[in-house]
Amino acid sequence: MPSKNVVSEIAGSVWKIEKKAGDTVEAEETIVILESMKMEIPIASPIAGKVASLAVTEGDMVDVDQLIAVVEG
């Protein structure tokens, strides 16, 4: 099964986890919502599949390119 690393394109804090490991996701569906510049920035799955693992928890600070989740297609 192809797996895809979902990384953050921005720096910010993890505001809300929308999907947990094991959940199924559609392509473009939000996995995690970051907060940056007082905005909610959704981090979406690039593919449909299952969240294999989550690399962050709510409140974490994330950097550009940091791994957010792994999705298995």
């Binding site: 940056s36 510049m37 905005m39």
Partner: peptide, 8 residues
């Protein structure tokens, strides 16, 4: 693009 730092 608001999805990058709210456009900041």
């Amino acid at each position: 693009d608001p999805r990058f730092y709210g456009g900041g």
